[in-house]
Write a protein that binds this DNA or RNA. Structure first.
Lengths: 349, 349
DNA sequence: GATCTTTTTTGGACCGATCCAATTTTTTTC
DNA sequence: GAAAAAAATTGGATCGGTCCAAAAAAGATC
């Protein structure tokens, strides 16, 4: 397989000149240039090998998204919330003409198969971080990287959506509609069966999956406290995002709630559907509010009131930070409450 | 910034030994290994630079999807049909633990910014090819690559969905339901205003956007011919996939059709909606059939009968071919007719 | 046409590793 | 304890280029 040096030899010029023909064509006189080009054609040489060039250049023109620890490429793309995030990143890539790579963290991967350790990119974006050690490989590579919705200290760039504000707005919205009897559907991030939390016991610790979930829980707590409700008295279920029973569980656990606060969109949609299956009208008999806005939320019937956690903007901002490089920066994005049809005034008993 | 050689020096061993510590740890005795590891820690050396290692290894453990010529990364991901394809590719990546890169073909891109020419990947998958020259950069790089739904000759691996069979099944389905008066909504792939094709004129050439569209047209032609219908007598509109007026246009152009054959899902859904807006019941008054099965088709009301063009399988197959390497292969995937609610028996006048 | 500029071209060093044959060290065998 | 076998270590070559200062060629000036 022809190399630059072969082309140079064939054309009777030095490597440098041949190199220039491909990189700074107008630095070499037409006559020589043509000779080199002819030689290249002759030998089927398609231009400098990107791999080799890389060694010196140091830039690849690509960034990587690292999916959460337990997700592969397809899991990331299938997840409606994450796929919005990916979309945001991809927009930023298009802005600067960069390529986008998805690099799952394969913990066991040795040698070339170890994701982050070997990915040939200019920087990383972490889709979700649960432990600091997950970002260690990126730190060691000394490439720019950004974490999302996670506090990794002042020295690591981050983009965060103010989950507290979002969840607070959601709870406040329901309170303003007159609701006083709630149910909370929270996340369980450790694999396992859903948990129903007994009413009346403090449970800050158990209620917490990720830090971001804790923030939401705090927001609920604070908003409810303002109208004299102790969150510990609010029935709560904690379940995985994909747990199909969770909707029924929270409806069972909070039988006389007039409103459900869900930390997940998909679960919120499931609650709407399950409530209707049980003969309760939404929002007349029950208001439901979710967190995150995906296409399915709008299609829900009635359309779901939810918090837009600005996934696209978050992705775009994160990618821009990586492209910009420079000293660590921290961006905070304000979520937006999207009021649709699944919430309404509390029915007076 | 520390290099392998610095670590070696600091530990008082040769480069080779240091290299082995990171690549074949059990080939070097514990004593030395520890010394090297200590030195590495001391110097903040995180292991061999992937870029440099690449030069020798030749493998990156990543493949690239090249979006159609006019699409960037985000356009690809936003497109519901293509995103299924991407999903299929991503599944194959997960199977072998590879990374997935999206590399738009930036025609003007010089140097590091030229997509395919510089992407550091092991192979390419072309999402859609319209001209042979689009795949030229990949060919020159001598990396394995696969084209999809395009015939680039026997020497270039391809995965194709039998569009003829799919479209034929669609037309046959309507014919079997008793329909005899049709309208056809076809693709316009060159930018421009939608075209209404006059009835009674031969139009094979004009009807054709991509080869794949031509196949569908041929299939319609053949299926209709079997019941004595000349396709040239069937009203036809040709429009871009995103043209919002197309649905109205075909309904206007084929006012007494009882069934519409659409080459696009999104357009088919639009037709269903537009027909209902005009007071026609689907499928009682009008049957509509699409091509490609995306989530939105199922949510359509009534759910859309359409051809599942097996986008996921197509992507998976293409990626597997790239990973497998070896001599060119050609796979053909059979589409499936998905019968839902938007088609029904022709109403007897 | 000789001298001074400017433009081209060139060879050496380097980018950061891996590979392999040869050498050195350690272990085994008798 | 010497010889043979096995294991560990090493230096040189290589992967395929780019960069830069110096040399050569071309062009300008008088």
């Amino acid at each position: 397989m022809a190399r630059l040096i072969d082309v140079a030899k064939a054309a009777g010029v030095s490597r440098s000149t041949a190199s220039n023909v491909f990189n700074n064509p107008d630095m070499v006189r037409p006559k020589l240039r043509q000779r080199v080009e002819a030689a290249a054609r002759e030998l089927g040489y398609a231009g400098p090998d990107p791999t080799a060039r890389l060694l010196r250049a140091g830039k690849v023109n690509a960034i990587a998204i690292v999916p959460p620890a337990d997700m592969g490429v397809s899991a990331l793309l299938r997840n409606p919330v994450f796929s919005l995030f990916v979309l945001g990143v991809s927009e930023a890539c298009d802005e600067v003409g960069a390529n986008l790579m998805i690099v799952p963290d394969k913990p066991g991967g040795k040698g070339i198969n170890n994701g982050m350790k070997n990915a040939v990119v200019d920087g990383f974006i972490f889709g979700r971080v649960e432990h600091l050690h997950e970002i260690e490989p990126a730190r060691l590579r000394r490439l720019p990287f950004v974490v999302v919705d996670f506090d990794a200290g002042p020295h690591i760039s981050s983009v965060r959506v103010d989950a507290y504000a979002g969840a607070y707005a959601a709870a406040k919205h329901l309170i303003d509609l007159g609701h006083r009897r709630f149910g909370i559907l929270s996340f369980l991030r450790t694999f396992g069966p859903a948990r129903v939390h007994p009413v009346g016991k403090p449970r800050a610790a158990e209620a917490s999956g990720l830090p971001i979930d804790q923030e939401k829980y705090r927001a609920y707590t604070d908003a409810l406290a303002e109208v004299g409700i102790d969150v510990a008295e609010v029935p709560m279920v904690q379940a995985e995002a994909w747990d199909r029973d969770a909707a029924g569980m929270i409806l069972d656990a909070a039988p006389d709630a007039t409103a459900i606060l869900s930390m997940s969109v998909m679960q919120a949609i499931a609650i709407v559907e399950e409530a209707q299956r049980r003969g309760r009208l939404v929002p007349r008999d029950l208001s439901v509010i979710g967190y995150n806005d995906i296409a399915a939320a709008e299609r829900c019937n009635p359309p779901l009131t939810t918090v837009d956690a600005m996934g696209i903007d978050k992705g775009r901002a994160a990618a821009r930070l990586v492209f910009a490089g420079g000293p660590p920066r921290h961006e905070i994005i304000e979520p937006r409450l999207i009021i649709r049809g699944s919430t309404g005034p509390a029915r007076t008993r």
